[in-house]
């Protein structure tokens, strides 16, 4: 089955950080996201802990990942393709099925597990 993942996850894709620096997607590090969010006027990084990973009811190609998001520990579930990569703090790209991710995108990838802390975005508080 063809992947419908966005093109920027394909190995070699050029990503622009908030300070203008260009990096390949496979070379991104935790610090790149943190520093970009610090520069951003609107976005801030949240820590989203994986609480549960289940197969989707609707399609075998999808998984439902439940996160505990931010300091308020809001419960958020997202349905994603098994090969969809999340960025885990201090570890890098991780997906429910890293073999598929590597096969389809050539993106080096680890196995996403319960307890992993992923980088997510939220709006900066306007106060």
């Amino acid at each position: 089955a063809p992947s419908s993942l966005p093109p920027y996850f394909i190995k070699g894709s050029i990503i622009q950080l908030a300070d203008g620096e260009l990096k390949r997607v496979e070379d991104l590090r935790t610090e790149d996201f943190i520093q970009s969010a610090e520069i951003s006027s609107e976005l801030k990084i949240d820590s989203s802990t994986v609480e549960r990973i289940e197969g989707s009811q609707t399609s075998a190609n999808f998984a439902v990942v439940q996160f505990s998001v931010g300091e308020h520990r809001s419960q958020v579930s997202v349905e994603v393709l098994l090969e969809y990569p999340f960025f885990v703090f201090g570890q890098g790209w991780s997906s429910c099925c890293p073999d598929r991710t590597t096969q389809l995108l050539e993106l080096p990838c680890s196995k996403l597990s319960v307890g992993d802390v992923c980088i997510s975005l939220t709006l900066k508080n306007l106060k």
């Binding site: 622009q16 980088i119 997510s120």
Partner: peptide, 19 residues
């Protein structure tokens, strides 16, 4: 060659939660 912004790569979670 297309260039993608860094914030496309990580999910936006916790919609409209504040305070």
């Amino acid at each position: 060659v297309p260039v993608f912004p860094w914030h496309s790569l990580v999910p936006f979670l916790e919609p409209s939660q504040s305070g």
